[in-house]
Design a protein around this nucleic acid. Structure first.
Length: 897
RNA sequence: GCGCGAUUGGCUCAGCGGAAGAGCGCCGCCUUCACACGGCGGAGGUCACUGGUUCAAAUCCAGUAUCGCGCACCA
């Protein structure tokens, strides 16, 4: 162990350890091998990162969580597999390749569909492994030999099978509808791929001349209909004006016509319930081809649908009615239309109007509601069982509140637009016969029409990327083939993911997973981890420079330091303001572990590994073993309940504040002492506790724990070479160590030692100054203190310790009251009366205030009659202690004058 | 408009019904033979506000304020 440096150097061990894990095939788990354990498999599928992606903080957090779970369950002996893979990410990848082409001055149309797809594959081959390599840096124990891709051959079959199945069952249909259109990506998007941003726009009030002036019920003459709109440019496609049927102001207008300004088209005034009489003027222009509501109204009233925009959102140039705007971009056209409305005296007024604007989630371009022919999935039949699965607890969300978000969306689910006008992706497996009009979906490519024999033409569009991702938990296990893997590993256990893909991905996996697996849910537990923001609470973004790169963090703090620092920050909260200082603490913690291990190893060179768990009468041994037993239970339940922050803090607290600060210090004198048996006893406990603590820490800090563990003097004939597959500490077996007495006893010893330190600090004495200590203690502590005299003398640097039930205060002594003890420390000639008085008065204030509170409580009838007996008893004891302390302090103060 | 989350020491956060906690920062002391990425001692908080429930509230309920995030077809 002399090769262990005084400072932990993560980079000198991480890579070689990881390579060893790979070589030993620890990350793999076969069905045959798994079955021999007789235990339930534990499977996690990684949320497949985009092939375009590189590791960001969200990944770092999420994959630490998954790896911690996987490593924990692997140690418990369950057949464990973490399924790895990447997503072809239709739009994102296509954008990247288009950008690359653009540098050569080319468009995808220039190179053609086949060549373009070829380039996408090349791009994937070049960049797709980046993120996988980064996961390895983190120590993630995915099965790297079973890497999936949402476009690989078997996955393509799964996608086509899904489509054909739903198509044949009538769940997939084609329709001409208003969908969300990104004019930059020139593709349709589903509703949830649109992000809404609040913007201040304008509400334009425009008057449309009535074909015939009308006399209203109250006798007023009306010559114009005034409508309010946020999108004046779409008026070119207006085909009606609508009012509410009960709006008496306009009853007489219904059935008459108005003349569309700038265009001259005659349009009807209709009545429709949709119109809110309170908003604007109560009259709405109806543009069926450019607004989803208007579209519905148009259907109800059989209105023409006039599309005025091209697919890149320019005014069409083939309509003579508004040739003036032909070819203009939609925003340019808006300005032009407003200008013309103004000069034609049609524009009444303009108001500021806050509203939310839809944007493409891939390129932030303003979405255009666009009328086009697309493919849809009828979601309601799929949603129903998936809602039920959450209601009856087959799928559980953590934190649970996300269930409500899920219900809300699922219960109001809309049909899913799945066709995309892209080239990179799963091409829609629908074949058309232009001769006889036959249309069929097929898993296998078809060339000839089964009806008439004419050549078939495949649909040009591809599927939404999320259509393939929804199959992830079972397609990666071989579905649609009834593989052994699918049979053994499905359903998976835990899914950990970010909240922003709850609908895009999680909900859809539940629906398709159940639909294709005989109602079996795809996973039991869904962890929605907090979203990582920077310290200012802003989104981490590379482009804004507000991001932090996990690779840099690992460079600075080591993989374990980063992982542990992240886990410390995972609580039930939904936003996580990333605190880099926690990573610094965690790096320091790793160093502490390293040095504690160094100390133990230095002191156990002559120690013979034992098969049995240690047994000891020594109070320090009993105490630390008792603390360990509690820790194991806490860590275990914490992990089972996904309370990662709490687990990390428990581990930190135990290892640093208990094991290092006290146990190791208490053990030192025994290790150096003459009592060989006692020395061996201390060695056994040190090794045992360190061994177990490392196992508990391993899921969070895989590298350092394995590095140290391999050096420990353990009976390696009974153990695997790596901690990775070492058994998880057995809480039941350890429960025999629970020992209340030992815990009390250590509290007492700590109190005495601390008292000596405090006195030294207060009097500016060197820490080495030896002190005499006289203690007045209750009977049961006298024995304890006498027995542990040597521990106290060493830790507290006590030259002379006397303990008795009737000790009286020596002259010139400082007094400390703690844990039921009166601790006197004589300070010949040193006692600073003012300092003592100041200290005691301050303590008196606090004690008096506390006592007062307890007394009030204990004299309260309601408290005595209603509070739990054990609480009352506890409070009585506390009050007694406080009373004793107060009396003692008062006596001292009186003595001091 | 509806929903969710946050509001605790200088900073970032735990705690979520029974005597206010951590890390970092700050103030002392200590380079003693695991660790200065360290040790020891200490200062620092009417737990956003207002009501309510309870014997007891940072903790539960209602409302208010501020910040953040979702969802929603109001032109």
């Amino acid at each position: 162990m002399n090769e262990m440096t005084a400072q932990y150097e993560p980079h000198s061990i991480e890579q070689s350890l990881f390579e060893d894990w790979i070589d030993q095939k620890y990350f793999q788990q076969s069905v045959t091998e798994g079955k021999t354990t007789g235990k339930d498999p534990y499977v996690v599928v990684i949320p497949p990162p985009n092939v375009t992606g590189s590791l960001h903080m969200g990944h770092a957090l999420n994959n630490t969580i998954q790896d911690a779970l996987i490593r924990y369950h692997r140690m418990t002996g369950r057949p464990t597999r973490w399924v790895l893979g990447t997503d072809h990410a239709g739009i994102a990848t296509q954008n990247k390749v288009e950008q690359k082409l653009a540098k050569e001055g080319l468009t995808r149309q220039d190179v053609g569909r086949d060549a373009f797809i070829e380039q996408c594959w090349e791009w994937r081959d070049e960049h797709g492994s980046t993120i996988v390599e980064q996961l390895k840096r983190m120590g993630c124990s995915c099965d790297y030999d079973d890497e999936w891709f949402t476009m690989n051959e078997s996955y393509q079959r799964a996608v086509r099978k899904t489509f054909v199945d739903w198509f044949d069952r009538g769940l997939i249909y084609r329709g001409n509808r208003i969908i969300n259109w990104c004019p930059r990506c020139t593709t349709a998007l589903s509703d949830i791929e649109v992000e809404h941003e609040d913007q201040t726009g304008a509400l334009y009030y425009v008057q449309y001349e009535l074909e015939n002036p009308a006399t209203l019920g109250d006798g007023t003459q009306m010559t114009h209909a005034v409508v309010a709109t946020t999108r004046p440019e779409t008026m070119l496609g207006d085909t009606a004006i609508a009012v509410h049927p009960d709006d008496e102001r306009y009853t007489d207008l219904v059935g008459t016509n108005a003349i569309l300004p700038l265009v001259g088209r005659v349009i009807p005034i209709i009545a429709d319930e949709y119109v809110d009489p309170e908003f604007g003027t109560g009259m709405v222009k109806i543009t069926p081809a450019h607004d989803p509501n208007d579209f519905e109204i148009g259907l109800r009233h059989d209105l023409p649908q006039i599309n005025v925009l091209t697919e890149d959102a320019k005014i069409v140039s083939d309509d003579p009615d508004y040739a003036a705007y032909a070819g203009m971009d939609r925003f340019e056209a808006r300005d032009a239309v407003v200008r013309d409305l103004q000069s034609g005296d049609y524009l009444i007024k303009t108001e500021e109007h806050p509203h939310s604007v839809g944007q493409c989630y891939r390129c932030a371009t303003t979405i255009e509601p666009y009328l086009s022919e697309q493919w849809f999935v009828d979601m309601k039949p799929l949603a129903a069982p998936a809602i039920e699965a959450v209601r009856d607890g087959r799928v559980k969300f953590h934190p649970q509140r996300w269930e409500n978000v899920y219900y809300h969306w699922m219960e109001n689910i809309h049909d899913w637009c799945i066709s995309r006008q892209l080239w990179w992706g799963h091409r829609i497996p629908v074949f058309y016969c232009d001769d006889c009009g036959e249309m069929l979906a097929s898993v296998e490519d078809l060339t000839d029409c089964p009806e008439c024999g004419a050549p078939l033409r495949q649909d040009e569009d591809v599927l939404d990327t999320w259509f393939s991702s929804q199959l992830w938990p079972f397609a990666t296990l071989g579905w649609p083939d009834a593989t052994e893997e699918l049979n053994f590993f499905y359903p998976t256990a835990t899914l950990s993911t970010a909240r922003d893909i709850l609908f895009l991905w999680v909900a859809r996996m539940v629906m398709s997973g159940m639909d294709f697996n005989e109602g079996q849910v795809p996973f039991d537990d869904v962890i929605i981890h907090p979203t990582v923001f920077n310290k200012q609470g802003k989104r981490m973004s590379k482009s804004l420079g507000t991001g932090v790169d996990p690779l840099d963090l690992m460079k600075d703090y080591g993989a374990d330091g980063m992982r542990f620092g992240l886990m410390l920050q995972v609580t039930g909260v939904q936003d996580l303001k990333f605190d880099e200082e926690k990573l610094l603490s965690s790096r320091n913690f790793a160093n502490k572990i390293w040095n504690a291990a160094r100390f133990v190893l230095m002191n156990v060179t002559d120690f013979t590994p034992r098969a049995q768990m240690p047994q000891s009468d020594n109070v320090a041994d009993r105490w630390i073993l008792s603390r360990l037993a509690t820790l194991v239970t806490n860590v275990e339940t914490g992990l089972e309940e996904f309370r990662f922050g709490e687990v990390a803090r428990d581990l930190y607290e135990f290892f640093w504040s208990e094991f290092c600060d006290w146990y190791i210090e208490l053990a030192k004198s025994r290790l150096q002492g003459d009592d060989a048996e006692d020395r061996a006893q201390a060695q056994a406990v040190l090794v045992f506790v360190l061994d177990n603590a490392l196992r508990l820490l391993h899921p969070f800090m895989p590298f350092i724990t394995d590095e140290i563990w391999r050096k420990l003097p353990l009976d390696h004939t009974q153990l695997p070479p790596s901690i990775m597959t070492a058994p998880w500490p057995d809480a039941d077996a350890l429960s025999r160590y629970h020992d209340e007495h030992a815990q009390d006893a250590i509290e007492v010893l700590k109190a005495v030692v601390t008292a000596t330190r405090t006195v030294r600090a207060r009097y500016g004495l060197s820490p080495r100054t030896e002190l005499e200590v006289a203690i007045k203690a209750p009977e049961h502590y006298v024995k304890l203190l006498e027995e542990n005299k040597s521990l106290i003398s060493t830790l507290g640097r006590v030259s002379h310790l006397t303990t008795a039930t009737d000790t009286t205060k020596p002259e010139n002594a400082s007094v400390t009251v703690a844990s039921g003890l009166e601790i006197y420390i004589p300070l010949a000639g040193l006692v600073d009366l003012d300092a003592e008085k100041a200290k005691l008065s301050k303590e008196r204030d606090k004690v008096a205030a506390d006592l007062d509170r307890f007394n009030k409580k204990l004299s309260n009838e309601g408290f005595l009659s209603k509070a739990a007996p054990e609480i009352i008893e506890k409070d009585r004891a506390a009050a007694d202690d406080l009373k004793t302390s107060l009396e003692l302090i008062d006596a001292q103060l009186a003595e001091l004058g």
